[in-house]
Design a protein around this nucleic acid. Structure first.
Lengths: 271, 271
DNA sequence: AAGTGGTCTAGACCACTTT
DNA sequence: AAGTGGTCTAGACCACTTC
């Protein structure tokens, strides 16, 4: 059994690279050096990510234990552990001592503020009330198509909503989502859903947002925006353009938020 | 030797903080369970951080190898490794395979854009030209004193500068620094220094910025600001209020930046 | 008591850099 | 050849949760 260590490794490694520990038998001594090398734990990480993406383990569910995964992939527990460590750091899974490792979900308190950076200047962060102003299917404008990696004219779901803090209009938001991925998405579905929008996306449409980039600017409120937010035309607003990505760095959401920063601010940590 | 493993563990853990490496003798077998527990690698991490803070190892310098540190602290290399892993993740040190582990420094290409989030809409990020408008020592206003954890009226260094991209004024910035920490800081020192301001702070004043928080709002340019940035009064600007921290989460810089976002944007990654 | 993640150790070998 | 960080393994024990 002792010797089987390097054997095991050798048996799973060769696929991706030469051999991390060709060591033992490696009758395949003459194998050409592979161009793309990656350490074992990265390969395991990729395998686990595939299972997450494929829906084999769904958001909120328990994934197999480290010991079991080690057996399945024929590697040591330490290697699986390092793979899961990185997945946890990227918020793809959540570890809970004594319980196990769970697929991360947006339907969870800890996740509610990860993508919501607008905080009240005073008091503790509250959930915003939201009101849907428009939900319709349209053809993707060129700019939207480009950012979502679609063809210009492809179907997209367009959403416009107003969010308020204690009755005070604060955020005016527009979203564009690939029509193919969000077929049954209607205003009713949105309105009746309790919890964060990303929670709905992941549980009803199988699309989980992993990360996002935001470009932020200061703009002046135009007439309709001023009306909606109940401020004077020309009032300075934060404009945040977000592109969100799911597994495989695939862009699946475009969002433009206009933030009134009279009693709120965009909170960011530089580290 | 085999048995000594658990010895080390048993002898260093119970104390938790008292003695990281009681190691050897530790006749204190019957020590009472300590109230504040922390794993060994966290204690090692704290010890290394102390050496960084004390200046035992200075920015840019090589720190002792993992093997040597393991010997010094009487723990295994794996434990030192986990400690350094976290320090590297927090950008306190930088690992370089084959060379060793170095104290992180702001005088380095990779660090130049960590705290600079304003990017040009087109083209690759450039360094801004900067011009110092004011550098003087003043008494801390109440607000500044509060954020820097000083007494109102304590001496602070006040700096005002204008930054331009290809000749176009883009950022108007004000800084407040504790006078005690930045005694010899003058306009000349700033003007003649090549490289990032944080590089000057760490190499000349022994204060290294570790992390920061920013609160961002949209504001209208007032008359003097409009003049400096060569825009119309009332033009929407991004206002970023930054508080920077050094070792021990001590606030050591307050910075207010006014960003013209006509041809630039604040770039943020949500992950 | 059993199972899970969390910590710690020891030793091996690999990849990279310098001598 | 020697030294450093990077990967991998195996086995031990701890802390927490559940049965």
């Amino acid at each position: 059994m002792k010797k089987s260590q390097s054997m095991n490794q050798a048996s799973s490694n060769p696929n991706s690279n030469g051999a991390t520990t060709t060591g033992a038998g490696s009758a395949v001594g003459g194998a050409a050096p592979s161009p793309t090398f990656s350490p074992l734990y990265q390969q395991i990480k990729a395998l686990i990510t595939q299972s997450l993406q494929s829906g084999e383990w769904k958001p909120g569910e328990l994934i197999p234990s480290e010991v079991e995964l080690a057996g399945r992939y024929k590697v040591s527990q330490g290697t699986v552990r390092k793979a899961i460590d990185e997945l946890a750091a990227e918020h793809l899974v959540v570890r809970r001592q004594g319980k196990g490792t769970f697929v991360a979900t947006h339907n969870e308190a800890r996740a509610h503020f990860r993508f919501l950076k607008l905080m009240p200047d005073e008091g503790v962060p509250q959930h915003f009330e939201h009101e849907y102003l428009e939900v319709k299917r349209i053809r993707a404008p060129a700019e939207v198509a480009r950012l979502l990696d679609l063809k210009s004219g492809d179907a997209v779901v367009y959403i416009k909503r107003l969010m308020s803090d204690s009755g005070a209009p604060t955020i005016l938001e527009e979203l564009w989502l690939p029509g193919v991925l969000f077929k049954g998405l209607t205003g009713e579905r949105l309105a009746e859903y309790k919890g964060p929008m990303y929670g709905l996306f992941e549980s009803e449409f199988g699309t989980r947002m992993i990360r996002a980039t935001e470009k932020i600017r200061a703009v002046a409120a135009d007439a309709p925006t001023a009306l909606a937010l109940k401020v004077a035309e020309g009032t300075p607003l934060l404009c945040a353009d977000r592109v969100s990505f799911t597994y495989g760095d695939k862009a699946v959401e475009l969002r433009r938020g206009l933030y009134l920063t009279a009693k709120h601010h965009y909170q960011n940590e530089l580290s």
